[in-house]
């Protein structure tokens, strides 16, 4: 444990020992938290509440905040329609995308952050440039390209595309993060005979957990929720991802709010779970960064 964290802890203990101001401060804190939560969650809670209403109550006017006769029929329908298979596809595709972007992104970000070589500046500029291309404009040429490569309607094709689209951002994020790390430790590792790859793996990456988690979360949210790319590049049920499946409830015969909302609520659960699981690493950055101080 570093000296600073000891001080921090004792400071925190000191604060909680002060009786008079604390109550009011706590009240203010929870009031502010309440306002934030209301803004963030109201539309989604409304969606949750509606997803629990029978089909002929969802549109009711004036609206009722809570379902009068809650039902799980829409959730049953969503899973009856084969949601598990589509969720599995989404997990495979998003998981592979996250691994690929973080892997390739860490390599490239490290090269840009720690090596001085000719063309580095150009590459940095290109990274930002690639980030700025509107993806919608690439769809038609990409379709042709993937077809020619035999990757149309495969999960691998989706993973490659998602990785290509998100990699520049991840490189940038990780580049930025690596730059904030003290270079001295790396130098020490290098003197100890570590190759650059080993330094990256054993020293840099463990110190970069908050940055990696932020980048992973960012990529995960994109890959998990993408509809436009998936609907264009896949066509069979075997490759259908969950967002495309959700879109089927905006059908020709009508917009089915019940299953649409139920599926959307279901789709949030895995990422929130991932985030909660990753929180640990997010906090450990405190001691990780403490190395510098």
């Amino acid at each position: 444990m570093t000296a600073s964290s000891v001080i921090l802890r004792s400071a925190a203990r000191e604060r909680s020992a002060l009786p008079p101001g604390v109550g009011r401060r706590l009240l203010v804190r929870w009031a502010v938290n309440g306002i934030i939560a209301t803004f963030a969650l109201f539309p989604i809670l409304w969606g949750l509440s509606s997803s629990l209403k029978p089909a002929d109550r969802i549109m009711e006017f004036p609206p009722r905040l809570l379902p009068q006769t809650p039902t799980l029929e829409h959730y049953a329908r969503v899973f009856g329609d084969g949601a598990s298979g589509y969720i599995l596809n989404s997990i495979l595709v998003s998981g592979a995308t996250v691994l690929a972007t973080l892997g390739f992104g860490a390599l490239a970000g490290y090269a840009l952050a720690r090596f001085d070589f000719r063309g580095r500046g150009t590459l940095m500029a290109l990274t930002v440039a690639v980030m700025s291309i509107p993806v919608a404009s690439l769809l038609v040429p990409t379709f042709t390209l993937l077809s020619a490569a035999g990757l149309i309607d495969t999960r691998l094709g989706l993973v490659l595309l998602y990785t290509a689209y998100q990699l520049p951002v991840v490189i940038w994020m990780l580049y930025g993060y690596f730059r904030t790390l003290p270079v001295e430790i790396e130098n020490a590792a290098r003197i100890d005979g570590c190759t650059p790859l080993a330094t990256l793996r054993k020293v840099v990456l463990p110190l970069s957990k908050p940055g990696l988690v932020a980048a992973a979360l960012f990529v995960l949210v994109f890959a998990w929720n993408d509809f436009v790319v998936a609907v264009t590049m896949t066509s069979s049920e075997a490759t259908r991802t969950f967002p495309v499946a959700i879109y089927f409830y905006l059908g020709f015969y009508g917009r089915e709010w019940g299953p649409l909302l139920a599926a959307s609520i279901v789709s949030i659960v895995p990422i929130v779970a991932v985030f909660i699981a990753l929180q640990r690493h997010f906090m450990s950055g405190l001691t990780g960064g403490g190395v510098k101080g």
Partner: peptide, 26 residues
Amino acid sequence: MTIVIDRRAVLAGAATALAMPAVLRE
């Protein structure tokens, strides 16, 4: 055991799994 080797193995495994439906369809 190292992170990179693990990741490679996972990637290779994932790539195989991801390419499966194309093979099956053929």
